[in-house]
Design a protein around this nucleic acid. Structure first.
Lengths: 195, 195
DNA sequence: TTTAATTGATATGGATCATAACAATATTTG
DNA sequence: CAAATATTGTTATGATCCATATCAATTAAA
């Protein structure tokens, strides 16, 4: 827990630096999606107020909640930067992934495992469907439910996304050391009580 | 990264169960603050749709971003449940902590180290000041800035909050094992690029 | 001294998330 | 079977969170 976001200009992620140019030159305006990726790309305002960090933060930097929050923000931004060219938010990526691994499931099922309110999931799916990435089909057995699938385009995009995501994991591995990444995931799963 | 929040009814945190009654019997209506603490307390709807998790989530459960997100949500909820009686959000707690460790600093400084936009921090401080927990003082050296301090009440409340927070850390320690918690914090700091 | 930067503040829009209500359909049960 | 209840997808709506633009007062820089 802790503050809101954070990330001073100094705390740019690897990927952001790497893709800085790429992102800008990609196309005119990639039809921004979701919250603007914070400051994935911006006029070099580096070191400007980076200092002033003579403030005492020791009360927070050893707190699980705070570091968790900060890490999540950092990873989110890194993800957004990497996925900018695909115009996919983390949430959208997770939806495509789950649909891909569970084709034909009901809307509500997909939403629930991801912890998305089915009411809000409607809009998410609308967007993915509008982009031709996913599609709803009326279930033959239950006229109420919609079976959800990825389109070919959706599968193709997910393929690219998977590669970007794999690259991110590799960067984590090299940042945290060999077993560091695995250890982190294991600890996080315990905290999140997943599985 | 992953979905939105999550947390099926099965995934309650220790603290939430512990404080369930406490929270409800605390007082009439503790003047809710911030987003409702999800489902810290609720009519026992335990096991209801817990199943249906025959869905394949293997594509996500090994992803740093996703587990990070889930962990953050879980910890946030746990925190909210513990701090319900104090009516403090994680963000507010972090603000009080930083002010306490850095009394007399400018508004903008406090905000910046926490990654809060100074524009949004104005409102946060307004609330804390309205509750008599913090106060602004005109700086003698710079008529523009406000020096921020905790009031006695603020210091007192922070004292209680620190204890609750310490308890949470201890629960993490017992959940993750002796060095588990420390390892987690260390890994998260690297990921967040803190320090 | 004129210009630029900082500080606190207000207003506003976007994105996220939760809840209420509803129509269509399915299931339960009396 | 008929009536009551539950599920599914949907729309609408409000709250919170976060970012940007703008502004007045004040200070610092040119």
């Amino acid at each position: 827990m802790g503050a809101e976001d954070d990330l001073t200009p100094a705390q740019k992620t690897l990927a952001q630096r790497k893709q800085a140019q790429k992102t800008t030159s990609a196309n005119g305006t990639p039809a921004r999606r979701g919250r603007k990726p914070a400051r994935a790309v911006e006029p070099d305002d580096a070191d400007e107020g980076i200092e002033a960090s003579d403030l005492d933060l020791t009360g927070l930097t050893s707190v699980v909640g705070y570091t968790l929050r900060r890490a999540q923000m950092a990873v989110f931004e890194d993800f957004s930067a990497r996925f900018a060219t695909l115009d996919l938010t983390p949430a959208q990526y997770s939806v495509l992934l789950v649909i891909s691994d569970n084709p034909g499931r009901k809307q509500s099922e997909i939403a629930r495992v991801l912890g998305i309110q089915r009411t809000n999931f409607v809009v998410m799916l609308d967007q993915l469907e509008k982009r031709g990435l996913a599609e709803r089909t009326r279930s033959a057995t239950d006229a109420r439910s919609h079976a959800v699938f990825l389109t070919k385009a959706g599968t193709a995009l997910l393929g690219k996304a998977r590669k970007l995501q794999a690259a991110q994991e590799e960067d984590f591995a090299s940042l945290l050391g060999p077993g560091g990444r695995d250890t982190l995931v294991a600890l996080l799963r315990k905290v999140a009580r997943i599985d």
